Simulated assay, not measured.
Amino acid sequence: MKQILLGLLLIISVSSCSLLRTSTSTTMNVDSSLTSTTTADLQVSDVKISYTYYPKKQERKAGLNHVISNAVAAALKENGNADILVERQYEAVFKLRMFGKKIKSVTITGYPAIYKNFKVESFK
């Protein structure tokens, strides 16, 4: 009986001694706005493109936004190496699993566009 009581007392004393650490930090807002006086024309294609992207396992771990960004980059590279995709839309296909869902593919549609005629305005 004494051994059971000692064992129970030991278990209670070990489990009740938990260590909780907290720390604080002070932050200050820094004005980090960046302005540029450079302007450019945007030449948008008349043809709407569609591209289906199949992410790798490592990319899926980074999340849906990361996969969409990679899909847009691949679509632009595949279709004339444009600078930006105008009116971008996406459709993601997921496979439901027991513990969450897995991104199978992402289809990106939009109009590729290229920046042209960069103009730097001078200060007077």
Rank of each mutant, 00 (worst) to 15 (best):
M1N: 12
M1R: 03
K2Y: 08
K2H: 10
Q3S: 14
I4N: 05
L5F: 15
L6M: 13
G7S: 11
G7K: 08
L9S: 15
L9C: 14
L10R: 01
L10I: 08
I11A: 15
I11Q: 06
I12V: 14
I12E: 09
S13I: 11
S13W: 02
S13V: 12
S15M: 04
S16L: 09
S16R: 00
C17F: 04
S18M: 04
L19R: 06
L20D: 14
L20C: 08
L20Y: 14
L20A: 14
L20H: 12
R21H: 06
T22N: 08
T22I: 08
T22Q: 10
S23N: 03
T24E: 13
T24W: 07
S25M: 05
S25K: 03
M28N: 09
N29R: 11
N29M: 12
S32Q: 04
L34A: 08
L34K: 10
L34P: 02
T35A: 13
T37R: 05
T37Y: 14
T39Y: 04
T39V: 12
D41T: 07
D41G: 08
L42F: 01
L42S: 01
L42G: 04
Q43R: 12
V44P: 03
V44F: 01
V44N: 04
D46K: 14
D46N: 15
D46L: 13
S50T: 05
Y51G: 01
Y54R: 05
P55T: 00
K56W: 15
K57R: 12
K57T: 10
Q58H: 13
Q58S: 15
Q58G: 09
R60A: 05
R60F: 09
R60W: 07
K61E: 13
K61N: 06
G63Q: 08
G63V: 09
L64R: 02
L64E: 14
L64H: 05
V67E: 08
V67C: 15
I68A: 00
I68Q: 03
S69V: 09
S69I: 09
A71E: 01
A71R: 00
A73M: 07
L76N: 02
L76I: 00
L76G: 00
K77E: 10
K77P: 02
E78N: 10
E78R: 06
N81G: 06
D83P: 00
D83R: 02
D83F: 07
V86D: 12
V86G: 07
V86H: 04
E87H: 06
E87T: 03
R88F: 08
Q89I: 05
Y90E: 12
Y90R: 02
Y90D: 13
E91V: 05
E91W: 02
E91Q: 13
A92N: 02
A92C: 05
V93E: 15
V93I: 13
F94S: 00
F94G: 00
K95D: 09
L96C: 01
L96A: 11
R97P: 02
F99H: 09
F99A: 03
G100R: 01
K101F: 04
K102W: 14
V106N: 02
V106H: 01
I108V: 13
T109P: 01
G110A: 07
G110W: 04
Y111V: 08
Y111L: 06
Y111M: 04
P112K: 00
P112H: 03
Y115C: 12
K116Y: 08
N117D: 14
N117Y: 11
K119I: 08
K119Q: 15
V120W: 11
E121K: 07
E121L: 10
S122G: 11
F123S: 14
K124C: 00
